[in-house]
């Protein structure tokens, strides 16, 4: 059995490695100190079990899970997380609150070694709270998009097209997810297929009775249709 430890603090890694070193069933211990390395190693090495710190540089633990092709057993480790703990429970075999005792560690590990878990459920709609950034894969690179950079989102079959200044990225996700998790004061679902960043709206024009179109700043070519309920949401959000 291969294990991967994803921790950005060397001592935290060493502690887990030390605990794992006496387990006969663990044949290899891999280490990663950031989210990018974690994604790369999981996709390449297919570890059976991953100890994943939630607070990581660049990509956090939840974002790592979104980007992997292979689903190992996940044990989250976190020092203090006021909102996310309940969400992790759904996505992981277990979670360890740092500092944890050796007994607690072996108990969590035991769940994996004894096959007591049933695999990870669909993560896609479980992102807790309000997101600040979105991660997408472009080729073999990972791109981190801060939500301020997003102009609008467009539904495209099973994907959402994230439109930014001069670039767009597809992400396998639902509109409902973004509607729920982006800050609602900035991002408005104006149409079944569109969510608009209110800060990027240039103008809203009326082209037929009860029919409106949004023009986005510095992007005049694409006009975004507004549904009737979408128009009411806009009016509420922008106070007109």
């Amino acid at each position: 059995m291969k294990a991967l430890i994803v921790e950005d603090e060397p001592l935290a890694r060493q502690l887990i490695a030390q605990y794992l070193s006496v387990e006969k069933q663990i044949s290899a211990i891999l280490e990663a100190s950031n989210g990018f390395d974690a994604v790369r190693i999981i996709n390449k090495e297919h570890p059976d079990i991953v100890f994943l710190d939630v607070e990581l540089p660049k990509l956090n633990g939840m974002e790592v899970l979104e980007l992997i092709d292979f689903q190992p057993a996940i044990i989250f480790t976190t020092a203090y997380d006021h909102y996310a703990i309940s969400a992790f429970e759904k996505n992981a075999v277990d979670y360890l609150l740092k500092p944890f005792s050796e007994d607690r560690f072996r108990q969590a590990l035991g769940k994996v070694l004894n096959n007591e878990f049933t695999g990870i459920k669909d993560l896609k709609n479980e992102m807790p709270g309000t997101i600040e950034r979105v991660v997408v894969r472009t080729g073999n690179k990972i791109k981190v998009i801060y939500i301020d950079e997003i102009k609008f989102l467009e539904a495209q079959d099973d994907y959402v097209n994230i439109v930014m200044e001069g670039e767009r990225h597809l992400k396998h996700q639902t509109m409902k997810f973004f509607e729920r998790n982006l800050p609602e004061k900035d991002f408005i679902r104006v149409h079944r297929s569109y969510i608009v960043n209110a800060n990027c709206i240039d103008q809203i024009e009326n082209y037929e009775k009860d029919q409106y179109l949004i023009t986005i700043k510095e992007n005049n070519s694409q006009k975004i249709p507004v549904s009737k309920t979408g128009y009411n949401k806009l009016r509420n959000a922008l106070n007109f």
Binding site: E9, L11, Q14, L15, Q18, Y80
Partner: peptide, 18 residues
């Protein structure tokens, strides 16, 4: 900062062993 506090305690936990 609770992150700092608990992570530091975690480091101590590791150091005691190592």
């Amino acid at each position: 900062n609770p992150h700092f506090l608990f992570n530091s305690l975690n480091s101590i936990n590791a150091l005691v062993l190592i």
